[in-house]
Design a protein around this nucleic acid. Structure first.
Length: 1026
RNA sequence: GGGUGGUUAGCUCAGUUGGUAGAGCGCUUCGUUUACACCGAAGAUGUCGGGGGUUCGAGUCCCUCACCACCCACCA
């Protein structure tokens, strides 16, 4: 059965992958030697609805290389696969599809139905990315495939949340958070992308209350007055005029003398009904920079992170202006009532704490319900109309409203791409500062190693400045926060108005008020919940079905949410007049957890924690995490913190951080730019091995890689080269099938065979060393160079005369050696190119095990190397190269056999010739080799070690060309000689340089000088001809 | 504003403790020698971003400048 000329990847890959799976080759511990050390890797879980992109292909190729390598070495290997539920992204994808299908909207169908709908989406698309990973060749243990919302994983999430809660690591509070008006949810700092956009900065006058005036004096650095004028206003600047409605104060720096006269006075916000303009105080705070703008800053505590801090420091109320969807609020009190309250605060009649910021709505009727950007336009127009924009003269002296065009950094949601608003909302937070230290220490001490090392700096910088982590999301898809709300039944007295000995619904409702609301986590209700509960309730509650009986008692909840939830609860459950059968209304927090809260538990959760599973014992901590630099903060840092916080152990020994795959021009691949290379298309076109090899070969640590099809083509060709080397071996019966498998390297006597065995030992060491050091490119390139340039270019060529010759023993030896060497190529290349190597492995021999489980070699270069054979073959190769070079430059016809002569060879050279004459003659196209007294005139000179060799072919070459060739060589040599002499003649060199360096230089110089002498002789001979 | 990385052959990039620069692709010439034209042989191309310093010796270490890329950040 003759082999095809090329490997048919499209046909073979699926078949081979199925064979691996059928034989359970990827199962945890498969191929482990007795006592094999654990080697475990958790896959960075792709989004369950996602599809494979180049980053995944890269990331998983690297993982698969390590996994296959360790598995072949007999380690106890686990590659844990799985997918992530990816809260926002998945909800977004599902809703988009629902819209396309004209299905009812999320809000129409309700939470339960929607969540079910997303599960359906999940089941539908789950196969996609897993199938794509398989096409890449990823050898994960698919039987262990996990999902961040599986039951077991959910337990891990619950346990962690509750533990954190009880340890005071999680808290709920009303804070200013990043709010995404598109998805109407809070997001964490990391999900905000700050992008520079062209924006405007408007300058407006805030008139002083009661028409007061002051002398505004501005001085330059030397204290000279540069402007002095009477003003009845203070000038402020803003990039977001709509937030003026929520200003609580204007702040100036305490040392800013320009405004000293008016500190403590009130000024007017120049927007809103004329008869009800709000007044706000002018305060001092260290935050304003006197040198920037006017030096005065409007303080909108509820809609700006800086202002929030200033407001809190100074007791300024936080007035909420926006609704969840980014429109101006329509709820709450009327503008008139709200303005009265705000005025009372400004006048000191009320404190900020007394203001119900959810109720007070300072948006004038004219702006209520407007989109925030519409409101901005309207407000700017209104103020400008009123003449309260600060006017600036243009070139012609016309006064124009001062609107600066300037680039501003604007926050965008990384998913929604809409402008993020700081919003004052109730959210859950992890107090990360409390759990960060072990994550920092582990990397500092080297307990966990981050590669490349420069990424440690980024890691440290972020962790050392860590902010609280907002973990609640106002979404439906995700782990619902395991907190339940109910009413405090302990301290209340029932009032039996009717005195009839029963409680009717009215009486119950009076009791069940928001003021009476409590909450607690999913667990421990026995311990704390119902202690002190009125006796007749305790029994009822205990008898309730889960989860309704899981209320716990901890702290008072937000009254609006409570009232809302209560209403629903009461509507949902009938209230029985009989108090012993009264259904106690409890309800769960409506938020879900940030996706990263669950994926932060990925290493533990996938191994079965909190159960004490065997897998956990065996494979945790995991060995290596391979991930992209873009999720160091999102994921790696949080996994470090969370595993330490829960089990006190590092999740990984090593974190290998890889760079980004870009297009061939260095641009980030993006769908909108249209420069995305789809790995699946590439696999279709070139085969998975070529794609994998390309990625591995370009994976120099810490640097982005530019992917081009040319490169992939090259590695596809490499596969063909390997294929054809194997095919040659097969044609010459140099395969394990024909010669029998040898346990180790076969015995060899011929120098050429002994030499290639030594080279094989060397490359095995190189590949291993590279992989140990995560130098994937070095590993790939070493195996590539060996296979192509050592085995194919030389060894196969050397072997041809031996395989076709008469010496049966030599032929047999060469067949054995070639069979073994090609096997070694297959083994060493398998982690990078699993498919073609597995296919050849099967074609070339009847094997006990598939290549995926073949034993990785351990022979050392030193065991196999034969210095004599190596020296001899390097002489042979050098000679052949010199002859070929001379011939090519002399334009000797490529196929023409020519005579060769020498003037005497030393012992080594002589032996080298004798033992390799056949193959030298063949490869250099030499017809004869004889000793002569002197090289003939006009002979082409071939410099070699241990003699002078020449081609007496003056009659067929151009003497001038030969002279030119020699002179060129001479020039090069002279340069080198000059350099070496210069160094050696410098006394300081001999003094300071290590002896071996000096010695090397001397040897080099001697060799160059001897060569130069030969060239000089040759030139002299040519001169005689001419 | 802070930080990190990069600047090496026409292109894309390696270059691990300082010892005098490499690969792949492309290009030029030659070649259908029975593994392979997805091939083979030969060949050309670099003041290693600029400047300064340390050293016998610097692509490699230090300083500085320029440009590019990315990350972080609250300047209204």
């Amino acid at each position: 059965m003759a082999m095809e000329k090329t490997f048919n990847a499209a046909e073979a890959e699926g078949r081979l992958y199925e064979a691996w799976e059928a034989a359970k080759c990827f199962a945890a511990g498969a191929n482990a030697k007795p006592g094999g050390v654990p080697f475990s890797v958790v896959i960075p879980p792709p989004n369950v609805t996602g599809s494979l992109h180049m980053g995944h292909a890269f990331n998983n190729t690297l993982q698969d290389i390590l996994i296959r390598w360790h598995r072949m070495r007999g380690d106890d290997v686990l590659w844990q696969p799985g997918t992530d539920h990816a809260g926002i992204a998945t909800q977004m994808v599902t809703e988009r599809e629902m819209m396309l299908n004209q299905e009812p909207s999320r809000l129409t169908m309700g939470r339960e139905a929607f969540v079910e709908r997303v599960w359906a989406q999940k089941h539908k698309s789950r196969g996609t990315i897993i199938g794509q990973l398989k096409r890449l060749g990823a050898s994960c243990d698919w039987d262990r495939e996990a999902f961040t919302m599986d039951g077991g994983f959910h337990d891990a999430v619950l346990k962690t949340f509750v533990d954190f809660y009880e340890r005071g690591l999680i808290y709920r509070g009303k804070r200013l958070v990043n709010w995404d008006p598109q998805f109407e949810t809070a997001i964490s700092d990391l999900e905000v992308e700050n992008i520079e956009v062209q924006g405007h900065m408007w300058h407006f006058k805030y008139p002083l209350a009661g028409g007061e005036t002051y002398t505004f004096v501005e001085r330059d650095a030397e204290g000279h007055v540069i402007r002095e004028e009477e003003r009845d206003y203070i000038s402020i600047a803003t990039t977001r005029p709509e937030t003026m409605l929520g200003d609580g104060a204007v702040a100036v720096h305490p040392d800013d003398e320009r405004y000293a006269p008016i500190v403590g006075k009130l000024c007017e916000i120049p927007v809103g009904p004329k008869d009800k303009r709000r007044l706000i105080p002018i305060i001092t705070d260290a935050y304003p920079d006197p040198a920037f703008g006017s030096g005065a800053v409007k303080i909108t505590g509820a809609h700006d992170f800086n202002d929030y801090a200033v407001a809190n420091r100074n007791g300024i109320p936080l007035y909420i202006l926006l609704a969840a969807n980014g429109t101006m609020r329509e709820d709450g009190l009327s503008y008139a009532d709200s303005a009265d309250i705000a005025l009372a605060v400004a006048n000191g009649e009320m404190t900020a704490a007394e203001v119900d910021v959810n109720a007070v709505n300072l948006v004038p009727d004219a702006y209520r319900g407007l989109d925030r950007f519409e409101a901005r336009k309207a407000i700017v127009a209104d103020i400008t109309d009123e003449g309260l924009a600060v006017m600036m003269p243009d070139e012609e002296g016309n006064l124009l409203p001062f609107v600066e065009q300037k680039p501003i950094m604007q926050p965008f949601g990384d998913r929604s791409k809409v402008v993020i608003e700081p919003m004052l909302t109730d959210q859950w937070f992890v107090d990360t500062a409390q759990i960060v230290q072990p994550a920092i220490d582990a990397v500092r001490t080297g307990e966990t190693r981050i590669l490349p090392e420069q990424d440690q700096k980024v890691y440290f910088h972020w962790l050392e400045n860590i902010e609280p982590w907002t973990i609640s999301r106002q979404l439906w898809w995700g782990h619902r926060i395991p907190v339940w709300y109910g009413f405090d039944l302990r301290l209340q007295e029932f009032v039996d108005d009717e005195g009839d000995g029963t409680l009717d619904p009215t009486e119950m409702l009076r009791f069940l008020t928001a003021d009476n609301l409590v909450r607690g986590t999913d667990r421990h209700h026995a311990a704390m919940n119902f202690e002190g509960v009125i006796p007749q309730f305790a029994d009822v509650i205990a008898g309730l079905p889960t989860p309704l009986n899981r209320a716990t008692v901890v702290e008072v909840e937000d009254r609006h949410a409570a009232a809302h939830a209560m209403a629903r609860s009461l509507a949902q459950y009938e209230i029985d007049q009989d108090p012993t059968k009264l259904i106690y209304p409890v309800w769960q927090d409506t938020d879900v957890l940030d996706t990263w809260f669950s994926s932060g538990l990925w290493p533990l959760g996938t191994l079965g924690w909190p159960e004490e599973t065997e897998a956990l014992k065996q494979y945790f901590p995991t060995s290596v995490l391979i991930t992209g630099f873009d999720i160091i903060f999102f994921w790696v840092a949080r996994m470090m913190m969370m595993q330490f916080a829960m089990v006190g152990q590092r999740p990984f020994d090593t974190v290998y951080v890889h760079a980004l795959v870009r297009d061939e021009k260095g641009k980030k691949m993006s769908k909108s730019v249209g420069n995305v290379l789809d790995p699946l298309d590439l696999i279709d076109e070139y085969g998975a091995d070529a794609v994998r090899f390309t990625l591995a070969a370009m994976a120099a640590m810490g640097r982005d890689l530019r992917l081009s099809k040319d490169r992939i083509t090259g590695y596809r060709n490499f596969g063909t080269k390997l294929w054809n080397a194997a095919r040659f071996a097969e044609m010459n019966e140099a395969t394990p099938r024909m010669v029998g498998a040898t346990a180790g390297p076969p015995p060899a006597t011929a120098p050429v065979n002994r030499w290639i065995l030594g080279e094989t030992g060397r490359v095995r060491e190189e590949v291993d060393a590279a992989l140990e050091a995560f130098r994937f490119n070095d590993a790939a390139n070493a195996a590539y160079a060996f296979t192509w340039h050592m085995v194919c270019d030389w060894y196969v060529e050397f072997a041809k005369p031996l395989l076709q010759g008469d010496d049966a023993a030599l032929k047999a030896e060469t067949q054995s050696v070639m069979a073994w060497v090609i096997d070694q190529c297959l083994i060493l290349l398998h982690p990078v190119m699993p498919f073609i190597t597995e296919e050849l492995w099967g074609l070339l021999g009847a094997r006990e095990k598939m290549l995926v489980h073949a034993d990785w070699p351990t022979y050392a270069a030193a065991d196999l190397a034969d210095a004599e054979a190596q020296a001899e073959m390097s002489w042979v190769i050098g000679l052949i190269e010199e002859v070929r070079s001379a011939r090519a430059q002399m334009h000797v016809a490529a196929g023409l056999y020519v005579p060769m002569v020498h003037t005497g060879l030393d012992a080594d050279a002589s032996r080298a010739w004798d033992r390799n004459a056949t193959l030298i003659k063949r490869l250099a196209r030499i017809e004869s080799f004889e000793q002569v007294d002197a090289l003939p005139k006009g002979a082409v000179t071939i410099p070699v070690r241990g003699g002078t060799i020449g081609l007496p072919i003056a009659d067929i070459i151009d003497v001038a060309a030969e002279r030119a060739r020699l002179e060129k060589t001479q020039g090069k040599l002279q340069k080198e000689i000059d350099g070496l002499r210069g160094r050696l003649n410098n006394p300081k060199f001999a003094e300071s340089a290590p002896p071996e360096i000096v010695e090397e230089a001397q040897e080099n110089l001697a060799a160059r000088e001897s060569e130069a002498a030969k060239i000089a002789d040759a030139l002299a001979r040519l001169a005689e001809v001419a």
